[in-house]
Simulated scan of single mutants.
Amino acid sequence: MDSIAYVNGSFVPLSEAKVSVLDRGFLFADGIYEVAAVLDGKLIDNASHLARLERSVGEIALKLPETVARIIEIQKELITRNKLVSGLVYLQVTRGADTGRDFAFPKSGVKSSLVMFVSEKEIVDAPSAKTGVGVITVPDIRWERRDIKSVALLAQVLAKQAAAEAGAAEAWMLEDGFVTEGGSSSAFILTQDDVIVTRQNSNAILPGCTRKAVVALAEERQLRVEERPFTVAEAVAAKEAFITSASVFVQPVVTIDGKTVGTGKPGPMATRLREIYVDFAKATAS
């Protein structure tokens, strides 16, 4: 059955959802996107995602075509129309379709474009949360403004393809010998002395919304958190490793480049943080 999407003011079957070939998102990757999780038909940590959306569009001088309040209404309408219980709501804002292919911003008369659609996904009871996943490492070949959630994702596509070909679920990207982040996730380790380590926010990584919530939830429980870079060698020698994102919540990492992390099974810290985050998600869903 065809799902319902939203394209610039209209709800349409996904198979009929279209934008112009002159759309600057298509021609230049001149756009921003966000993905929010849905549990029990409700949005998870959505305010954080929309705050990041506002920050990202502001960084590239891109005006939202709708108010944030209206965007929330559309998100919820899509959930209702698609009877979505568990999954994701994707939204993308581009600078719109100009009359030609000019690198500079359109001077006037071009309205930014807003597209949204949903996808079903079992997040809470995902089998990989019980078994853990493998990651590989690849060079980080992205631009220097990774804090902007740009639709320009070719580097991440290549990283995730390399992971898929290696039978892994994710790729951790490396710069100057240190892990920056995953292709679509934030990277964490638990040291042998029980310190949770994740790279600090900067232009080098995307400020993950789930990462932010997990760090806050850990600190609330008096768990030790250190925000700094870490190496692959440190990760392999760690007690545990895990990733976070809106699409997986907290997911244990049990191998890195084929090397076993910890016991090779999901560890107690990642398991506990996942349970804590799921409780938070359900309690604050809207």
Rank of each mutant, 00 (worst) to 15 (best):
S10G: 12
S10P: 06
S10Q: 15
V12F: 03
L14Y: 12
S15P: 01
E16D: 13
V21W: 07
L22W: 06
D23K: 02
D23P: 04
F28D: 00
G31C: 02
Y33A: 04
E34H: 04
V35A: 04
A36L: 08
A37Y: 00
V38A: 00
L39I: 05
I44H: 00
N46I: 15
S48Q: 11
L50I: 05
E59C: 04
K63Q: 14
P65T: 03
T67M: 09
T67K: 12
R70D: 12
I74F: 05
E77G: 08
E77A: 13
I79H: 06
R81C: 04
N82K: 03
L84V: 11
S86G: 08
V89C: 12
Q92A: 10
A97F: 09
A97M: 11
T99I: 15
L114K: 06
L114C: 08
V115E: 02
M116R: 07
E120L: 09
K121A: 13
E122W: 10
I123K: 01
D125F: 14
A126R: 13
P127T: 08
D140H: 09
D140P: 05
I141Y: 10
I141D: 08
R146F: 04
I148F: 03
K149L: 07
S150T: 14
V151Q: 02
V151H: 03
L153P: 05
A155P: 05
L158Q: 10
A159V: 02
A164F: 13
A164L: 14
E165R: 15
A166P: 04
E170C: 04
M173S: 06
E175I: 13
F178I: 10
T180M: 07
T180L: 06
G182T: 06
G183W: 00
S186Y: 02
S186N: 15
Q192D: 13
Q192W: 10
Q192K: 15
D193R: 11
I196V: 12
A204S: 15
C209N: 14
C209L: 13
A213H: 03
L217N: 00
E220P: 06
Q222Y: 12
R228M: 07
R228E: 04
T231L: 06
E234I: 05
V236P: 09
A238C: 08
K239M: 11
K239Y: 10
E240K: 06
A241M: 07
S245Y: 01
T255S: 07
G258H: 06
K259E: 13
V261S: 01
G267K: 01
A270P: 01
T271Q: 08
R272P: 00
R274A: 11
R274G: 07
T284E: 11
